[in-house]
Amino acid sequence: MEITAIFQIAGVGIIIAIMHTVLKQMGKEDIAHWITVLGFVIGIFMVIDVIAQLFQEIKSIFLFQ
């Protein structure tokens, strides 16, 4: 597994956090929340393969021995 994915997600998190603060400061709370949701979705898309792998592993360990 690559370590870069973790850094990538961390980077997205930081950027989204800064965007959220900037938008909130300017009184656009609604857009700020949508940005946060968008960042969350991007993060999920990044780890979706890894999570799928994890479930496959669990399945093969516990269910189909």
Binding site: V12, I15, I16, M19, V22, L23
Partner: peptide, 17 residues
């Protein structure tokens, strides 16, 4: 100011992605 920082931040986000 908001647009200035948002433009740069959005660009960094795209680069990271």
């Amino acid at each position: 100011n908001m647009w200035r920082s948002l433009g740069t931040l959005g660009a960094i986000l795209i680069v990271i992605l």
